[in-house]
Design a protein around this nucleic acid. Structure first.
Lengths: 208, 208
DNA sequence: ATATAATCCAAGTAATTACTCGGAAAACTC
DNA sequence: GAGTTTTCCGAGTAATTACTTGGATTATAT
């Protein structure tokens, strides 16, 4: 639908700093005050640039949020792809699942206050290309896990089940990452999530 | 935090009609245009009442949305409690799970356009008392399912796992209810969700 | 050094919005 | 039917907000 492309990409170091400052300020404001209180004037003020500067680089407010989402999600996706490559080399699917889940939660936790707002409260974020493709990738992934773990206890509707599993996993990842708890407790929940995911995908508990 | 209680409850039939018209209009507007475009003036116009009337019964905009959420969720909760009572009488936990999941999806589907906005885009809705207690009830419920299905293949952290399962189930219910698909396909997904839930809770597939 | 392009900026604007106010009409009480 | 309460209403207000504009300043190219 609407295009969220930046109006002009910054060309010089000076403007690149402004550009980044705007995105950083946006992240801070989202984390602290939520999406409802986010205004372009406040972003500019927080970023230490004039409001005109903001509109030199972004066509509108949504574009700023979309660009921020893209940047943050790119980091998560990168981590996940690497984790998937590592998991593929692991032979043991149970270890692979554990690793992927751990990395996913870890990638989100670092910026959990921002992600909580972006992924749960901004109306257009779920429809952003980066989000759509991320979720599709997750569904494809949970297919492969199931296959890798052996097809003995197979599910009747492989694609639908893979989609369901990935949706459930995705949401649980967010919930765990968003909780305001200590690292030990988060690690425990992460491990239990891995176990439940394995149960869903394979139909039994992993061997010890 | 903020109180969302109605300023004055309507006492006469005439005002009760206005009150209901306001809530109906709110639901329609949310379904059609989302939370961002929801304005009190538009609600009053849609409802066919003056803006002053709206503020006779509600202290502010959030209170209207909170009241609507309460009403809609009360319906869902009622259905779920009844379904739980029925499921308890069923002996077979697998049939019980299937029944609960089916009823849950069914309760949401009827008003899925409104629920999609309320439950996924309105910042304060998840913190509403009705939502908090609903989710707690779901967690307690998935505990009981696990116990009812026999503790042979037990999970190491019962409470944490019950919480995780209920969160995943809750989110999957929403996803399935929100999809724009036909009833056959929705029924199929619902059934598969029941199976995956059973797998998570019990650790194996239901017999036959 | 000059021309051109990039960057910065903030006062101003037009539109929107939540909510108030004060009084009129209708319903209930006795 | 007088008095009281409930209900209705919409013009008006004060605040907010996304975005424009046009000119000043700085960097780059030649």
């Amino acid at each position: 639908m609407t295009e969220y492309k930046a109006k002009k990409r910054p060309k010089q170091a000076r403007s690149r700093a402004s550009f980044d400052a705007i995105l950083d300020a946006t992240a801070r404001l989202l984390a602290r005050r939520g999406y409802e209180d986010l205004t372009t004037n406040r972003i500019a003020e927080q970023a230490g640039v004039g409001i005109g500067t903001l509109y030199d680089f972004f066509p509108n407010k949504e574009a700023v949020v979309a660009e921020l989402t893209g940047r943050l999600m790119a980091g998560v996706v990168e981590n996940m792809e690497q984790a998937f490559a590592e998991a593929s080399r692991m032979e043991d699917p149970w270890a692979g699942v554990r690793h992927m889940v751990t990395v996913a939660v870890g990638s989100l936790v670092e910026e959990r206050a921002v992600f909580r707002v972006l992924l749960r409260q901004v109306p257009f974020v779920p429809q952003l290309p980066v989000m759509v493709s991320s979720r599709e990738a997750m569904a494809a992934l949970s297919q492969r896990v199931r296959i890798a773990a052996g097809g003995a206890l197979d599910l009747p509707m492989p694609e639908e089940d893979a989609w369901l599993i990935s949706e459930m996993l995705y949401n649980a990842l967010l919930e765990i990452a968003f909780l305001d708890i200590g690292p030990e407790r988060r690690q425990m929940l992460t491990r239990e999530l891995a176990r439940l995911t394995y149960r869903m995908a394979v139909g039994r508990d992993p061997e010890a």
